[in-house]
Nucleic acid binder design. Structure first.
Lengths: 386, 386
DNA sequence: ATATCTATCGGAAACGTTTTCGGAAACGCA
DNA sequence: TGCGTTTCCGAAAACGTTTCCGATAGATAT
C-alpha cells in the first residue's frame, strides 16, 4: 500500500518499526528504509528575514559578491555594488550579527561587571561606557555581582560564554581571589579594571584620586581646626579603601598629628556598622572633632545620626566624605565631599578596553587616573570665610 | 623554477600576474593557475576553544552524538552520555552561544530600552529585570535613549540586529510616534512596555498606580486643609503624566473643589521649567497653599526654592511628590510621596516578556499594575496628629 | 524463522555570513 | 600577436552547533 520512493512500486514494502513516533517502512527491492517526513520545522519558523542569499538570487550574483558589495571590499565592480546595495535596501536587508560574529570570531560586544547598578556611581560609569561604546559601534552587556564573589565569577563566565570581545570589571567587596580574571586573561581576553581595581593582574586600570582626595579632605579638616579626626574606612581587602586610608594618614603626618588607632574603624559600608563606628567614637573620653568617611553614603548616615543626637555639625564635629551626589548638596548641613566623575571613569575605561581589543598585542597595561574635585560645604566650614 | 602542484614539474610554469599581493603562476601543462598561499588566518587565530568536534574525536563518536549527550536528549545510551560528559568537563568545554543561537534561531537575550540609566527609578527597574532574567537563564542587553526619539529608534534597531528574543521598553519623553514598535511587533517580536507605556499598540504593559497615587496624594493635601492645590505636571504627550493629572482632577472633584487652570503647569521635568511654574504661581493674587509634583525630582526642586524664598513648608505651602528616593526622606522638611517600587516593575515586566517569548501564540497582552504606597512626611503634615 | 520493533548512532544539511583561492575575461605593453 | 597583468566574480570552506533522517544491531512478537 505504501509506495517506495525509489522504485516507485509498493509491492515489497514492509513495515519496519517506529522512529520518533512515525511509521517506518522498508523496501525489500531497493533495500532501504524510509519514513514519511513532515515539514514541521518549516511550519513554526519565524517570518523570513532577507538574507544575503536572497539578494544574490534577486540580483543574479553569488552570495560572496553580495558580501563583498556590502562590506566595502575593493574587489568589486562599482556598478555591481550599486545594484546590490540598491536591492539590499529595497529588500530591507539586515545582516545577521550572529552569523557575522560566528564567522569573524568577534562579537563587537563588551561585557561589564559591576557590584550594583543601583548605586549612582556605577550608574554614572555605565552611562559613560554606553556613550562611547555605541559611538564606536560596540554593544554592551551588563552584569551585577551584588557584591558576591561567586556571582561575580558566574558573571564573568556568562559574558565569556556570550563571546564578548572584552571585559570591564569593578570587583565585589568580597572578591579577594582573582583566579577567574587570571584565567580569562591567560586565554587572551582583553580586560580593563575600573574603580575597584586589582593589582594582582596585569590589566589596564582606571582609578580615581583616592589618595589625593583623602589627603585634601583631611587636610581641609585640619585647616578647619580639627585635631582628632576619625575615619570610617572600608573593608581592609579593598584596594581603593586602603588608598583612601593612606591619604588620611599622609595628611595627618604632614601636620604632625599622631595616628590614633581608636579613631580608625573598618566597615563594610553597611549602615549598621557605620553607626557602630560612630557609637564607639562618641564613647571615647575624648570624642573626635572631625570625621572622614571614605564613602559618601556613610557620611550621610553619620550626619543624620549626629543630628538626631543633637551634636552640632560642623562646630562640635565636622564631617567630610568621598564621592558625591545630589543628596550631599541638599542635606542640611550640606556635605563637604571629594567629588568624583563616574561618567568620565566609564568613558576612559571603555576607551582603554577598545584600544586593547583593537591593538591586541601592542597594547600595554596602563593606569589612568580620573581627577576629582574638592567641594567644600557647610558640614566642615567652621570659619565663615574660607 | 616554480613547481606546479599537480604535474610536479616546473617546466611549463609561467607567471600570471599578481593577486592580492601574491605572485600568481600558471602551468601550461595542467592548464591551471595557482598561488603560494600562506596560512595567515591560521596565524592570528585566537587560542583554540574546545568544540563539540574535539570531544567527538576524543570519545570516538560523531558530533551529533555529543550534542545529544550534552542536551538531555532521550536518544542516547546512558553510558555513552556519561563518558561524553566526563570528557567534556575534562576538556573544559563551553558551548559557543553564537553557534547555538544561529542554529536555534533564538539568543536567550532580551533587550531593554530606557530613557536614562542614571535615574534611580530606571536603575531599580534594571536591577529587577536582571535578577529574574539571570534566574531563568536569559541575558540582558541595555540601551539608553537619552530621552531622544531618534536614539530610541536606533536602540530598537540595534537590539533587533542583535537578534534579541524580546524587548522591554519605556519610551522617551519625545516619543509620540510608535512606528518603530509597530514594525517589530508585526515581525513577531515579543514586546512589553513598562512605566512610560504606549496605548497605541497591543503589547503587555506594566504600569504603576499613577491615577490612584495622585488621587491619594491630592486627597491627603485636601485633608490637611489645602484648597488651592497647584500641580506641576509632565509633558502632555506622556500617558503616565496624564494619568497622574487625572488622579489630581478626580481628587479635587470628590471634594467639590473647582479646577483652576492657572494652577496646572505642564513641564518637561527640567528644573528650569519647574522654577518657572513656581514663579508663576507665586505671582498669583492668591498663591497656592499646596503643590503636587508628578515627579519627585521636581518636588525636591520646589522644596529647595521655597526654602530659599523663606516660604514655610508645609504651613504656607504643602508639597507632595510622586516617586521616592532616599533624598525625599533626608531633605528638610522630608517629603511626602507616593512611593513606587521600581524593582518590582522590572521583575513583573521581564516575567511577562519571557512568558510572551515562550508562549508566543497563546500569549494575551495583559496590563499589570505594581502597587505603590503613600508615605506621609513633614512636607505636608500641617496637623501634628494624623 | 520471519516480521516487526526498539535503542542508539552517524551523515549531512541547515543557520547566515566571510574569506580564500582559482577561473575567465579584459587589458596593457612589447 | 603574445605574454604578463589586472579586474571581477563564483565555488567552496569555514565558524560551531542542532536536527533531520536513515541505518544498523539486537530484541521481541508472531
Amino acid at each position: 500500500m505504501e509506495i517506495c520512493e525509489k522504485c516507485g512500486s509498493g509491492e515489497n514494502v514492509v513495515k519496519s518499526g517506529f522512529v520518533r513516533g512515525k511509521q517506518r517502512l522498508f523496501c525489500k527491492t531497493c533495500g532501504i528504509h524510509f519514513t514519511f517526513a513532515l515539514p514541521h520545522r518549516e511550519a513554526l519558523k519565524k517570518p523570513h528575514q532577507t538574507t544575503i542569499i536572497d539578494i544574490a538570487k534577486m540580483v543574479g550574483v553569488s552570495p560572496s559578491t553580495v558580501s563583498r558589495a556590502l562590506n566595502r571590499s575593493t574587489e568589486i565592480n562599482p556598478t555591481t555594488r550599486q545594484e546590490i546595495i540598491r536591492v539590499a535596501a529595497e529588500m530591507d536587508y539586515r545582516p545577521n550579527l550572529l552569523a557575522q560574529s560566528l564567522n569573524r570570531g568577534e562579537t563587537h560586544t563588551i561585557g561589564v561587571v559591576i557590584p550594583n547598578i543601583e548605586r549612582p556611581f556605577f550608574a554614572g560609569v555605565l552611562a559613560g561606557i554606553q556613550k562611547v561604546a555605541t559611538e564606536v559601534g560596540y554593544r554592551v552587556m551588563i552584569c551585577q555581582s551584588n557584591e558576591s564573589h561567586s556571582t561575580e565569577t558566574l558573571n564573568v563566565q556568562a559574558l565569556v560564554a556570550s563571546r564578548v570581545d572584552g571585559l570591564l570589571i569593578s570587583h565585589s567587596k568580597e572578591t579577594t581571589s582573582f583566579e577567574h580574571i587570571k584565567l580569562q586573561l591567560k586565554k587572551g581576553l582583553p580586560i580593563v579594571h575600573f574603580d575597584r581595581v586589582c593589582n594582582e593582574v596585569e590589566t589596564a586600570k582606571v582609578v580615581e584620586e583616592d589618595y589625593e582626595g583623602s589627603f585634601l579632605l583631611v587636610e581641609h579638616l585640619i585647616q578647619q581646626g580639627c585635631r582628632r579626626i576619625a575615619v570610617c574606612a572600608g573593608p581592609r581587602e579593598l584596594l581603593i579603601s586602603n588608598a583612601r586610608l593612606e591619604g588620611y594618614k599622609a595628611a595627618l603626618a604632614k601636620y604632625g598629628i599622631v595616628l590614633n588607632e581608636e579613631l580608625v574603624y573598618h566597615t563594610n559600608f553597611k549602615k549598621r556598622e557605620t553607626l557602630l563606628a560612630l557609637e564607639s567614637w562618641l564613647q571615647l573620653p575624648q570624642p573626635p572633632d572631625g570625621i572622614f568617611a571614605v564613602h559618601y553614603g556613610n557620611a550621610i548616615e553619620i550626619l543624620v545620626e549626629l543630628k538626631n543626637r543633637g551634636i552640632k555639625v560642623p562646630h562640635e564635629i565636622a564631617v567630610v566624605g568621598f564621592g558625591d551626589e545630589l543628596i550631599a548638596e541638599l542635606i542640611e548641613p550640606s556635605l563637604t565631599v571629594f567629588h568624583l566623575f563616574p561618567f568620565q571613569v566609564g568613558e576612559t575605561a571603555v576607551t582603554l578596553l577598545i584600544d586593547n581589543i583593537i591593538h591586541r598585542d601592542s597594547f600595554r597595561p596602563v593606569v589612568q587616573t580620573v581627577k576629582g574635585e574638592l567641594i567644600i560645604r557647610e558640614s566642615s566650614l567652621r570659619t565663615k570665610s574660607l
